[in-house]
Write a protein that binds this DNA or RNA. Structure first.
Length: 567
RNA sequence: CGGGCCGUAGCGCAGUCUGGUAGCGCGCUUCCUUGGGGUGGAAGAGGUCCCGGGUUCAAAUCCCGGCGGCCCGACCA
């Protein structure tokens, strides 16, 4: 392809809206353009890269036994009512109305549709297992679209769904898919980590996220130094550093004006880890207290798992009404909770602790010398704390908290959807059974941007060859020179013969402009043809990744690059 | 939804405080120049100053109300 015949405009400066490197490069390198927040048009160059990612995804899905299908993006709400998710997923659903005022849903994911499909198609255990997948545009009414393609209202997802006759078999399908995922991310040049994850609104038995470690990542993940444990922060379990607290007698003491953990530490010398943080959660009807150590944070996903999905942090007015005191003076000392209908959940790190301090449910007063097990009214002991950097793992190793981009997610779903949508079959005994499901997503467009985020430097993108829009940037200088023209023709013939794709920068621009743009676009190899190189009897090949340069004869170029690609 | 910043040419921005001619750089068009890391010059094209209302002789600028964008948090591929 000739530059002068495609639609490609590079930007010297990044649009102000783009904050992170990959988003800026996406726009600067002419890969995509924004229509409006969270909606992007792929330009020819960006689409080529996207197609290459899709091709790799397809190849690995097929290799793992996946069957490609294509489902409608438009879905009837009745299906979502049957699965119960019309409520649970309400905030991400886009609704549209047709000419008769009937409502439709723009699919954010396809568990309902695919399960309904399988319910109709699969009648016998002989037809199982099956894994169906598609690569398709999804719609989610994101609270906050962000970072270009990272979190968009409309994005391309590869979603796969496995259907098995039993748990055992479902685990095998799950393993096959996660293995394919590892292969896919490796092939596109991403060192994605597989981490244990929370199942969230999807439901189900177990789940793994695939994360690319990056500072701009929106999620947090926990890894064990020198060990194999890896989990998403919502799910991760760790042990905080041992507390050196002493004992003491339960005693109420005045703490006028103290509202925070930090205040109590500063003004009364009670260090944060000797305090009990009392958080109030509500679902509008019921209220619950969540207790964590003063230096810990509650992990909301864990809290919701214990209390139920509808629970959220209560606002001040709700707290006052339920507790009779304001935030900063709350506590769960049994005697102060009389007559209050509250479920009290305490974090495991508090178990057995003595000599702690907590609010007295009386503004301006706290208790000290609290023996957690004796003095507090605790209904449930569970892990609800958020892991912190430096915590210890079960095996006693140090835990590290990093940021990550979630590029893929796998769920072992069980029978939640197959039961709701009647995906049943007859087993060898002629008995009716419910299919066991798994679902697996890869954010294809997000993956593309993650590749850019990971593979870039100050000059631009450094595409891995597997997904680069073109393998070669052919830069012709001295366009009018007949020898250069002949060499260019020879190079093109050689590349064509070797089946290597290239973009020919045939613009009448100065060398500096072309070199800068070649670096910005970042294809794996830049081939420069000018009077100088021709005089030396060849063309100059520069590797974008390493910066090394070599002279290669025009006729040999295709074979030379083919060689490098397979090396 | 809460908190912060911002809407002026395709992009990056100044001008707004202190009301009066709409500007700069990049990009774009034409010509000359230059020719291995964003050459230099000349002449041009391009604007509902986010929208609506108000104040005023006069509004990009002041006031009121909307809308939109970006960032931080809860949610997710």
């Amino acid at each position: 392809m000739r530059w002068t015949q495609t639609l490609l405009t590079t930007l010297r400066e990044a649009p102000a809206e783009a904050e992170i490197a990959s988003h800026q490069l996406l726009l600067r390198a002419g890969l995509a353009r924004k229509l409006t927040s969270g909606l992007y048009t792929f330009l020819p160059l960006g689409l080529r890269a996207l197609r290459k990612v899709e091709k790799i995804v397809r190849e690995e899905m097929d290799r793992a036994g996946g069957l490609e299908i294509l489902m409608p993006a438009l879905q009837p709400p009745e299906l979502w009512e049957r699965s119960g998710r019309i409520e649970a997923a309400a905030d991400v659903l886009f609704h549209v109305k047709d000419h008769q005022d009937r409502r439709w849903i723009l699919g954010p994911t396809h568990e309902e549709v695919v399960t309904a499909l399988v319910a109709g198609e699969v009648q016998s255990y002989r037809q199982l297992p099956r894994t169906l997948y598609q690569i398709q545009t999804k719609y989610r009414d994101e609270i906050r679209p962000r970072f270009g393609l990272m979190r968009a209202r409309e994005f391309i997802m590869k979603d796969a769904y496995s259907f098995d006759a039993d748990e055992e078999s479902a685990k095998k399908s799950y393993e096959a898919m996660t293995q394919a995922y590892r292969k896919i991310f490796e092939r596109v040049g991403l060192g994605a980590m597989q981490v244990e994850a929370d199942t969230g609104v999807m439901g189900g038995a177990s789940s793994h996220e695939f994360c690319v470690v990056a500072d701009i990542g929106e999620g947090e993940l926990v890894t064990e130094e020198g060990g194999s444990y890896a989990a998403a922060i919502e799910k991760a379990v760790g042990r905080p550093a041992e507390r050196k607290g002493g004992e003491g007698k339960l005693e109420k003491f005045p703490t006028p004006g103290i509202r925070t953990i930090v205040d109590l530490e500063k003004k009364h010398g009670v260090v944060a880890q000797d305090q009990i943080k009392t958080l109030v959660f509500t679902n509008g009807k019921e209220t619950a207290l969540v207790l964590v150590r003063g230096d810990d944070e509650a992990q909301e996903a864990k809290v919701q798992k214990v209390l139920g999905a509808g629970f959220r942090v209560a606002v001040d007015a709700e707290i006052k009404a339920a507790m009779g005191a304001s935030p900063g003076s709350l506590g769960a000392v049994g005697s102060t909770l009389d007559g209050k209908k509250l479920l009290v959940v305490a974090d495991l790190a508090l178990k057995g602790q003595k000599g702690m301090a907590t609010g007295a449910n009386d503004n301006g007063f706290h208790f000290k010398g609290v023996d957690v097990e004796k003095d507090l009214k605790v209904d449930q002991w569970v892990d609800v704390r958020k892991v912190r950097d430096g915590d210890l793992s079960g095996g006693g190793k140090r835990l590290k908290v990093s940021r990550g981009i979630e590029v893929g997610h796998a769920f072992l779903l069980g029978t939640k959807y197959s039961e709701a949508l009647d995906a049943k079959f007859l087993d060898p005994q002629g008995k009716q059974q419910v299919a066991v499901m798994g679902c697996y997503g890869i954010g294809v467009t997000r993956t593309l941007q993650a590749v850019i985020e990971v593979h870039q430097d100050k000059d631009g993108i450094r595409w891995p060859a597997s997904v680069a829009p073109y393998t070669v940037m052919l830069v012709t200088l001295d366009l009018a020179d007949p020898a250069v023209k002949a060499a260019t023709e020879a190079v093109i013939a050689s590349l064509d013969k070797a089946g290597i794709d290239y973009l020919w920068d045939d613009r009448d621009e100065r060398p500096g402009v072309k070199f800068k743009d070649a670096d910005l676009l970042g294809f794996p190899w830049r081939v420069t043809i000018g009077a100088k190189s021709v005089a030396k009897g060849g063309v100059e090949v520069k590797c974008r990744r390493t910066g090394t340069m070599e002279m290669v004869t025009a006729a040999d170029l295709g074979g030379w690059i083919r060689n490098k690609l397979s090396a």
